[in-house]
Structure formats: C-alpha cells, structure tokens
Computed example of a mutant assay.
Amino acid sequence: MEDIRAIKEDDQRAFHQVYDRYHQQIHGFILQRTKSEYVAEEVTQLTFIKLWKQREILNERLGIDIQLYGMARQVMIDVLRKEATRFKYEGEYAETPFTDSLVDAIESKDLLQIMEQDIQNMPKMRRLVFELSRKQGLSHKEIATMFSITPKAVEYHIGKALLQLKQHLYSVML
C-alpha cells in the first residue's frame, strides 16, 4: 500500500522498486499464457507504462500485485487482439496463434477463476444460495424451502452475491 501511495505521488524510485520486484513475475505470467517471448516482453513493458500513466487512479486498498496482474491481463488481451487483426489484414491469419478464440479462452478462464475464488470467499449462506441458484438451477422457492427462509431472502442473498462479484470483477478489469 505504501508503494501505491508513493507511486501516486510521482515517486520514480518507488516505481522502479515495483518494476524490479514484479517485472519477471509479470513476464512469466504472460509467457505462460501466450507461449510467445515477443508478446510477453511487449505486454510486460506496456503494463508498466500503463501503471505509470494511470498512477493517479490506483486503488490504495488493493495490493499493487493485484492491480499489476489485472493491468497485464488487459494489456495482453489488447495486444493479442491487435496482433490477430494485423495478421488478418496481412493475409497471414491462418498462420498466427493470436486468434480471437485464444483471447476469449484466456479471458474466460481468468474470469472464471476469479469468480470461483470470490464465490468461495462469500459468507456461507450467501454462497450456498448462490450456488444452488446459479450452478444447480434451483428456483428461489425451492431454495427457500430447503433453508426455511422466504423467497425474498433468497433474492437478497443472490443480489448481494452478484453485487460482490460485479464489484470485484470491475476492480480487476481496471
């Protein structure tokens, strides 16, 4: 949190410390997903440029690592989409691994992991109600009967669960 505050105050030394601490990790994170050294290097550099350019809006309540990985993920998706478009217009589309389906798969897998972790961290009743509704397809009335609560209480738990997921996903997407 101190790193974030210092970076927000234009402290280049703090920025360089964060860069030194996370450069290899971000590079490995991207390389593992894309299997491309070029993309990994490009995305890593663009991620740190984005960190510096967006320093004023960093969230001091979230760890710098969480924000960096979120930025890296978003930059990676942007770079892969640009590469896919470039290859498509140059007539090399069939030869490139950077297709929309790869981007979509990475995006979906990352989002599902984030959502699943968020669901596991919910209060027990909220998690149970949400999973019964969304994963098992039970109606509000069926869930209410199972737990001896009202259908309105079921709606409340599901609403709170969705709000929690939406808020966290929004913060990750920044």
Score class of each variant (00 low, 15 high):
residue 10 D to L: 04
residue 26 I to V: 15
residue 16 H to C: 09
residue 128 L to Y: 12
residue 25 Q to E: 13
residue 126 R to I: 14
residue 103 V to D: 01
residue 156 Y to E: 11
residue 132 L to F: 14
residue 133 S to C: 09
residue 115 M to T: 09
residue 94 A to N: 00
residue 82 K to R: 09
residue 70 G to P: 05
residue 105 A to K: 06
residue 34 T to V: 05
residue 71 M to A: 07
residue 139 S to P: 10
residue 11 D to Y: 11
residue 119 I to D: 05
residue 73 R to Q: 10
residue 140 H to W: 07
residue 90 E to M: 11
residue 60 E to H: 02
residue 12 Q to S: 11
residue 38 Y to H: 13
residue 137 G to Q: 09
residue 99 T to W: 00
residue 54 Q to Y: 03
residue 62 L to V: 04
residue 162 L to H: 09
residue 63 G to W: 00
residue 170 Y to M: 06
residue 142 E to G: 01
residue 95 E to M: 05
residue 169 L to H: 03
residue 68 L to P: 06
residue 74 Q to V: 07
residue 45 Q to C: 00
residue 25 Q to I: 04
residue 25 Q to F: 04
residue 154 V to Y: 13
residue 104 D to Y: 02
residue 105 A to Q: 06
residue 24 Q to M: 10
residue 58 L to N: 11
residue 39 V to F: 05
residue 93 Y to L: 08
residue 162 L to T: 07
residue 87 F to Y: 12
residue 146 M to I: 12
residue 39 V to I: 15
residue 142 E to R: 08
residue 110 D to K: 00
residue 55 R to M: 08
residue 105 A to D: 07
residue 153 A to D: 06
residue 165 L to T: 01
residue 111 L to R: 12
residue 29 F to G: 07
residue 46 L to S: 00
residue 109 K to N: 04
residue 140 H to R: 12
residue 127 R to E: 07
residue 153 A to W: 10
residue 98 F to K: 01
residue 32 Q to W: 10
residue 21 R to M: 11
residue 118 D to E: 14
residue 131 E to M: 13
residue 51 L to A: 06
residue 161 A to N: 02
residue 16 H to K: 14
residue 43 V to P: 04
residue 64 I to S: 08
residue 174 L to H: 12
residue 21 R to Q: 15
residue 30 I to S: 02
residue 157 H to M: 13
residue 59 N to S: 14
residue 28 G to N: 15
residue 57 I to V: 09
residue 46 L to M: 02
residue 170 Y to F: 07
residue 86 R to Y: 09
residue 65 D to E: 11
residue 100 D to M: 10
residue 128 L to G: 03
residue 94 A to T: 01
residue 117 Q to C: 00
residue 162 L to Y: 10
residue 62 L to S: 14
residue 62 L to Y: 15
residue 138 L to H: 15
residue 73 R to W: 08
residue 41 E to L: 04
residue 157 H to K: 06
residue 90 E to S: 10
residue 159 G to N: 12
residue 115 M to E: 11
residue 118 D to Y: 03
residue 61 R to C: 01
residue 81 R to E: 03
residue 66 I to L: 03
residue 1 M to R: 04
residue 108 S to E: 14
residue 150 T to C: 09
residue 153 A to K: 14
residue 45 Q to L: 03
residue 71 M to Q: 07
residue 63 G to F: 00
residue 76 M to N: 02
residue 16 H to L: 15
residue 173 M to F: 10
residue 119 I to E: 04
residue 70 G to E: 05
residue 96 T to Q: 03
residue 169 L to W: 02
residue 87 F to K: 02
residue 37 E to K: 14
residue 157 H to D: 14
residue 61 R to Q: 13
residue 10 D to I: 00
residue 59 N to L: 12
residue 121 N to G: 11
residue 132 L to Y: 15
residue 74 Q to S: 13
residue 147 F to R: 02
residue 7 I to N: 06
residue 4 I to E: 04
residue 49 I to Y: 03
residue 121 N to R: 13
residue 91 G to C: 06
residue 73 R to E: 05
residue 166 K to T: 10
residue 82 K to C: 00
residue 56 E to L: 07
residue 36 S to E: 05
residue 15 F to H: 08
residue 152 K to Q: 15
residue 118 D to N: 08
residue 129 V to E: 04
residue 172 V to A: 00
residue 128 L to E: 15
residue 38 Y to D: 15
residue 83 E to L: 13
residue 115 M to I: 13
residue 114 I to H: 04
